[in-house]
Design a binder for these strands. Structure first.
Lengths: 174, 174
DNA sequence: CCTTACTTTCAGTTTGTACTGAAAGGACGG
DNA sequence: CCGTCCTTTCAGTACAAACTGAAAGTAAGG
């Protein structure tokens, strides 16, 4: 089994911490980091040993990474075990994660806000104020959704172009 | 003390859940939701009763919201207690949060990546591959930083304009 | 089929974060 | 300055999420 270099250790540990701050399981993030740096697909057993976690923990974590769509199992000739490899395209990886977090978190929030606005009884005291607040929040989430929908279809290069355009507008405004 | 309407309850509970998913303490998020919906600033005591949490918990949570800069203490004539109110501008609120999360999480990651690239020993086996991966990741984080820096200075309206421009480019591309 | 190699599931345990209540620390009014 | 009202701090506790290891499940090879 391959020992980790100091550099790999540094990257993996940092990535793990990062994960926890964004509501992603530390081990899940660490496994992803390991696979991302690895030039070849790794079997679960080796991942477990390298990161010093239980084999079963790896199983669950890999499963989660697979549902995100950023890790997949590949087969190696003459080996019955599954080997796992990470997607290497960073932009696509984050796009996948963002898309899914939007679906799981942003969309339900939009629904909640719509439901609240629908349920709002105009006769209730302070209804106008509440509506104002809910609408402001809803407007923000709609804008985020719009932004997301537009990024979704764009190739990486176009996003970069937009970045440059933003820079120009900023200069004009100031 | 004002009882919560069903609608407020719904909003506050949802916001609390939302918070936990993004690494923000549930109570902190709930307090923010309550203050956001409240037309008037509330004393800590009332927040504690309304949400059924300990007075001391409110104290800590408010403190955190204050460091984010999205809640502040105000004084009410003839009342010795501090009253707390939430910022009402949603865009500004998220801008503040994003800016600070960037500083706490994105920036250290950029540094880590730069350090890794600097430490990388070209003589080590697989160094080229590792460099490639680290550079790809670093490039992404640089782009995110660039994007953030540009958004930072822009007024809300300009962000909306960029959204529309993106829509146009998308149509052209397809 | 049976064996062996590998993977997943799950009940119990550990760990870390959040929360509480009591005590200490201000500050204002009298 | 003393009492009271309010806020913060902190040590201990509760709770939820993560993790483990054993056992059950699955599939390939002989």
């Amino acid at each position: 089994m391959a020992e980790l270099t100091g550099l790999q250790k540094q990257y993996i540990l940092h990535w793990g911490e990062m994960g926890t701050r964004w509501g992603i399981n530390r081990t899940v993030a660490q496994i992803h980091a390991l696979l991302y740096l690895s030039p070849k697909a790794l079997p679960a057993e080796e991942i477990a040993e390298t990161l010093s976690v239980a084999r079963s923990n790896v199983s669950t974590s890999i499963r989660e990474l697979e549902t995100w769509g950023i890790v997949r199992a590949v087969h190696v000739l003459g080996d019955r075990r599954e080997h796992y490899e990470s997607m290497k395209d960073v932009w696509e990886m984050f796009r996948l994660v963002i898309e899914q977090r939007k679906r799981r978190e942003i969309d339900p929030t939009r629904e909640m806000l719509r439901r609240c606005l629908a349920d709002l009884d105009p006769k209730e005291a302070g209804a106008d104020y509440t509506r104002e607040r809910l609408q402001a929040m809803a407007g923000f989430f709609e804008a985020v959704t719009e932004l997301h929908d537009q990024m979704k279809g764009l190739p990486t290069g176009t996003v970069r172009k937009l970045l440059k355009m933003g820079a120009k507008m900023k200069r004009k405004a100031s």
